[in-house]
Design a protein around this nucleic acid. Structure first.
Length: 443
RNA sequence: GUGGCUGUAGCUCAAUUGGUUAGAGUACCAGACUGUGGAUCUGGGUGUUGGGGGUUCGAGUCCCCUCAGCCACCCCA
């Protein structure tokens, strides 16, 4: 007897059975389609990079989460932690052939050795898109529009894209003489939704060494609420005297005017309290929340950065982009009942009942597939009741009933597996009528 | 990484404060209804009680370690 190895998966790593993978792939396909519609081109990079490429890019915290080890050639290597650092390396390496602006999307798995929690894993998928090599606000605008189109294409109506601009925050900090403590201050500010404004004030004193008065001034920025125009007006007053801050407000105003013209205006809101954890953002920042499930956090976030590839090249590469949080979004859709438990990607099912007619079944299935219809042909001529039971459980929507009687009379039956209704359709060489009826039933 | 909670068939849970072959519903598989699924009926337990070790005459119940899940911190998608 051979010893049985317990089948198991590592902490934070998951299997994806069909009913999980089907909606997952659907969202990925939607993301690719939307990105492509704006001209973003696909790239891929290796999962494994030299450690020195990936280490030290996101602070000590992310270094601790980096999966790193020596390979068989004793090189120090690491699994990619995100798709942004590999993008920087990629562009620095291939800059000459790419030309700018360079727009790319990248859907790929990344790894982080952090502690797990619901919706947080050690292996997960990121769906990034970025425009590199331009400082123009038009690229910021387009980024917001992509997020908007993407959520709508996935099937969301109620969502808010919160926008902000790091220049406003930094400008205010300049005015207050606190710019050198920007990082801990922003980190505290980012928590305002969770710990409240008083909590933020306290944490700023503790973590960044501000006086209470200074903290109150910073927080004042984020207490601005209301219509975008009012908030802009308020921000303008707060950053007066800081050229950087004024520039940030002007950019934000310009961006909002543009997106409100090109997309649904109610989807965009200014929120001066969002800061994003990452240090490298320098301009526009985006976070997206679902109206129905704000508690789940941002499902699509990003921002503008000034110098993406500074570590890899002297060439200055400003850019802007965002990333769809696929796993978080799927968790939300699951909770909102937006995912049907289908276990088959093929809507039509063709039971196999007359063995002598096998090749005719195969031919019909081929014609339907050529017309773009997904058809599963059952591999054994088992009893019809068992085949229909199988089709029902898998979630097929229509069964094409075709037995000896139908072959004789030149007709087949299309059975809707949800309602049980069936219609009679003529069998033709080009299956034109079957195709038309199937399309109608699957709409 | 730190702290806390949890862990019994695929799923939801039982098992008299340690007592002998671990049960139920549901799901699943096979069949009844010989060309119509979701219903009903019949049959099947499918489990190293997450894993390992210890205490004990005896452990699903107690102790230790480990693995995994959840929650908080941290950070973030």
């Amino acid at each position: 007897m051979q010893r049985i190895i317990t089948p198991r998966t590592l902490k934070g790593f998951r299997d994806y059975p069909p009913h999980v993978m089907i909606p997952r792939e659907r969202i990925m396909e939607t993301a690719r389609r939307v990105y492509r519609s704006y001209g973003y081109a696909p790239i891929d990079t290796p999962a494994l990079e030299y450690l020195e490429i990936l280490a030290g890019k996101g602070g000590e915290e992310s270094d601790k989460q980096l999966y790193q080890f020596q390979d068989h050639g004793e090189r120090w290597v690491a699994l990619r932690f995100d798709l942004t650092v590999p993008l920087a390396r990629f562009i620095a390496q291939h800059f000459a052939e790419l030309g700018t602006p360079f727009k790319r999307y990248h859907l790929a798995t990344v790894w982080r050795g952090e502690n797990t929690q619901r919706g947080r894993y050690r292996e997960f998928m990121q769906c990034d898109f970025d425009t590199v090599g331009t400082r123009s606000v038009e690229a910021d605008i387009e980024t917001a529009l992509v997020i908007h189109d993407l959520l709508r294409a996935i099937g969301f109506e109620g969502f808010r894209i919160y926008v902000n601009n790091r220049k406003i925050l930094n400008g205010l900090l300049d005015v207050l003489g606190l710019r050198d403590r920007a990082v801990p201050i922003l980190r505290s500010l980012d928590k305002s939704a969770k710990i409240g404004l008083d909590g933020v004030v306290q944490e700023m004193q503790a973590a960044a060494g501000l006086t209470e008065a200074q903290a109150r001034q910073v927080v004042g920025l984020t207490s601005l609420r209301g219509e975008n125009a009012e908030v802009l007006h308020g921000l303008e007053g707060l950053v007066r005297g800081s050229p950087l801050g004024e520039e940030g407000v002007a950019e934000l105003r310009d961006l909002l005017k543009a997106v409100e013209a090109a997309a649904r205006p109610e989807c965009f809101r200014i929120d001066a309290s969002i800061a994003r954890g990452l240090d490298y953002y320098t301009g526009t920042i985006y976070e997206t929340f679902l109206d129905a499930l704000p508690g789940i956090g941002s499902v699509c976030s990003g921002g503008r950065y000034d110098n993406l590839a500074a570590l890899f090249t002297r060439q200055e590469l400003p850019g802007v982009g965002a990333s769809l949080g696929l796993d978080r979004l799927l968790a939300a859709m699951e909770e909102l009942g937006m995912i049907e438990g289908v276990q088959t990607p093929a809507p039509a099912f063709l039971p196999y009942f007359v063995p002598q007619r096998r090749n005719e079944y195969l031919r019909l299935a081929a014609v339907l597939r050529a017309a773009g219809l997904g058809v599963e042909f059952f591999p054994e001529p088992k009893k019809l009741s068992q085949q229909l039971k199988y089709a029902d459980r898998r979630g097929h929507r229509v069964a094409i009933l075709l037995g000896e009687d139908e072959f004789q009379s030149g007709r087949c039956l299309l059975k809707d597996l949800k309602t049980g209704q069936q219609i009679e359709v003529p069998l033709q060489d080009d299956a034109a009528e079957i195709i038309a009826q199937l399309r109608r039933m699957l709409d």
